[in-house]
Amino acid sequence: MSEKIKQRLLLKEHYVSTQQIRMIQLRVNRSIRPKSSALMVTSIDEYTDKPLVSAKLAISMAQEGKRVLLVDADFSTPTLHEWFQKNNETGWSDAVLKRRGVQNKIKETLFPNLYLLTTGPANRFSQEMWVPEKIGGVIEECKKEFDLILFISPTFHSSVNAQLLVEYCEGVVLVARANKSKKEELLTTVEAIERSGGKMLGTILQTG
């Protein structure tokens, strides 16, 4: 395994503690009953590191033996392909636009049971792809192959796409940052997620 990947995803205990990840993991296992489920990791502002949180949570769930698909749906700052050292020639955007063939766009990672679906090139992003029927179809296709689908989404308040995606997820994890994220924004974001039908599974607070 690449030492760079190991350091970035596993060894930043001071930044996103393993204890917080395990608490969310426990809530996921208690709250999500269907055989296959979709979760979303989002944030209240731009000060958070959602890729780190999403990757650590996905790794933890995969270590339980679940088949986990980590999906980068944040077209504003696509980063997971760089973290896992994969190309981003095709991905989520292609799967949604074509509504078929998602399996050949999924990439294996160095972590057992953990797979990755990158955004695909940003220039293919368009509002045309954010159609409920298209999104729902791809998610259902993925659920046939994976126990858990974990989406990293844009900041919730600033993105209609995140507010649409939450409708297809059985739970939401919110990321905030100590001394940066405001309490009022945290509360209003939680309320907005719940109004959209999302089920809050908890908040992860970054300290770094």
Rank of each mutant, 00 (worst) to 15 (best):
V102Q: 10
V102M: 09
V102T: 09
V102H: 10
V102S: 12
V102C: 10
Q103C: 03
Q103W: 07
N104V: 12
N104P: 11
N104G: 05
K105R: 15
K105N: 08
K105P: 05
K105E: 07
K105G: 00
K105F: 06
I106A: 10
I106S: 12
K107I: 05
K107Q: 15
K107A: 11
E108H: 13
E108A: 14
E108R: 14
E108C: 06
E108K: 15
T109Q: 09
T109H: 10
T109I: 07
T109P: 09
L110R: 10
F111I: 15
F111L: 14
P112F: 07
P112T: 08
L114E: 08
L114W: 08
L114A: 07
Y115Q: 05
Y115R: 02
L116P: 06
L116W: 02
L116S: 04
L117F: 01
T118E: 05
T118M: 04
T118Y: 04
T119K: 04
T119A: 09
T119I: 06
G120K: 01
G120D: 01
G120M: 02
P121F: 11
P121G: 05
A122H: 14
A122W: 09
A122F: 13
N123W: 12
N123M: 14
R124W: 06
R124T: 08
R124H: 11
R124D: 05
F125D: 07
S126G: 10
Q127M: 11
Q127P: 06
Q127Y: 06
Q127K: 09
E128P: 00
E128F: 06
E128Y: 04
E128S: 05
E128L: 06
M129K: 03
M129N: 00
W130K: 01
W130Q: 01
W130D: 01
V131S: 13
V131L: 14
P132C: 02
P132E: 07
E133A: 15
E133Q: 13
E133F: 08
K134N: 15
K134P: 04
I135K: 04
G136E: 09
G137K: 14
V138E: 02
V138P: 01
V138T: 02
V138A: 03
I139E: 00
I139L: 11
I139M: 09
I139Y: 02
I139S: 02
E140Y: 08
E141H: 03
C142H: 02
C142K: 00
C142D: 03
C142S: 01
C142T: 05
C142W: 01
C142V: 05
